[in-house]
Design a protein around this nucleic acid. Structure first.
Lengths: 237, 237
DNA sequence: TAGTGGTCTAGACCACGGT
DNA sequence: CCGTGGTCTAGACCACTAG
């Protein structure tokens, strides 16, 4: 089959949301509306809605409608608790290295014969602060050149994932992490304003995306004393 | 409505799996079989199957059937990488405190007006080792007395979650975590065979279960030098 | 009361896996 | 070929929300 009908509806709604034609908190077209718009049955429309719910885009309200949700925070472990609450007002991002093409691979893989073919990576590095207190160093590798449009670019609202979603229609669908408590070396300690040897949380992340050929690798170093890392995981919805 | 029909089917299949009447790798009754068995349509049966897939119990194979899957590891962050690979052979669990009823509450909650009414908790404490090297201290609180059958009991295969599932039909459906890198205090350091002040990973966990009134709280202290904590999160299935 | 989402029926046709 | 799961139609009735 070409493409499932329900996926057409998913695509339509995803774009509505990404392009903010329906903003956070606003209601999507009703299920019956979508039925007639796409000449499909409610079963099919509901399937599309379920998909979007799983992806965290929407929430349903019995008797009222389906509303665009605040985009899922802390997919995997990328939300430093406090970042989300501060919602930008007290958050600063310092670019330590703008996206560049480098001839090397990510410094780690995740077991299972994870081999990376491309000799090239897009690389960038950022320092995240809250109230001007540095809380996280973030190093990112994107193997291959498929996203070379990122090079030297600025991100939408300073968000890498938002940029991926809006400009490249790439969604993060999952991630794997390895976490360690470590003593900060001198470089890390300096950037995070810590004493040498202070405990920092080191997280290695591999993100999977809606494009099976594109993965993203990150190394995070977090000062968790004032802003611990938060994560949540729910199986349904 | 009393209980949805699809939930009846979910319950039926869940018990089949939990009581190992269908073992890991074996096939469940076909969808059409279940239709006639419960006098429902395939839509309803498929909905039940989808639910079980989301919960990680089964995998579907087009043209063949639906098979019982190895139970999901590392829900949330509870799998110390290496524990799962070792699959019991090199893993030891030392009971520091058998389940007892104590008159106190968990030492933390998770923001949002999380209030715990009951003045009582079931509490237990364990030390996890790999190759006789201590890697994790685990303190657990279960508020209320609904699971008083746990008191002084031993766990199925040494697994708390397996015991909850098999003996109480309670499934873990989600969890929230707060993670910090900390310096080990003397008590923690002694138990983990570390020097005072070594970095340890401190994780506070709140588990949600299929019973909305039952939550489980845990405090974990991990030595991540040899056995980092692993986690993975995939949105679909 | 009208409109929304939640559950369900009774079919249909297709794609895939094994015989 | 048959049985399996994957997609879809065209309805029905119910429960919830709001004017």
């Amino acid at each position: 089959m070409a493409e499932s009908k329900y996926l057409v509806v998913v695509q339509f709604l995803r774009e509505l949301i990404q392009k903010e034609e329906v903003k956070v908190g606003e209601y999507l077209p009703s299920e019956n509306d979508l039925c007639s718009r796409f000449s499909v049955t409610r079963t099919t429309v509901r399937r599309a809605m379920d998909q979007l719910m799983k992806e965290g885009f929407i929430e349903k309200q019995h008797g009222r409608g389906s509303r665009v949700r605040e985009r899922r925070k802390s997919l995997g472990l990328l939300t430093v608790k406090g970042f989300s609450e501060a919602v930008g007002s007290n958050v600063q991002t310092e670019i330590l290295q703008k996206p560049v093409l480098i001839q090397s691979k990510p410094p780690f893989t995740f077991l299972k014969g994870d081999t990376i073919e491309s000799e090239f990576c897009i690389y960038f590095e950022r320092l995240r602060k809250v109230n001007d207190i540095p809380v996280m160093i973030e190093k990112n590798w994107v193997p291959g050149v498929s996203l070379s449009g990122l090079i030297d670019s600025e991100f939408v609202d300073g968000s890498f994932f938002k940029t991926l979603s809006r400009d490249f229609q790439i969604e993060i669908i999952g991630s794997e992490h390895i976490l360690r408590a470590e003593s900060a070396n001198s470089k890390i300690a300096a950037l995070l304003n810590l004493q040498n040897g202070s405990p920092v949380l080191h997280i290695s992340v591999k993100f999977s995306t809606s494009n099976p050929d594109i993965h993203i690798f990150s190394e995070l170093y977090c000062n968790t004393t004032q802003f611990p890392v938060g994560n949540s995981y729910y199986m349904n919805q």
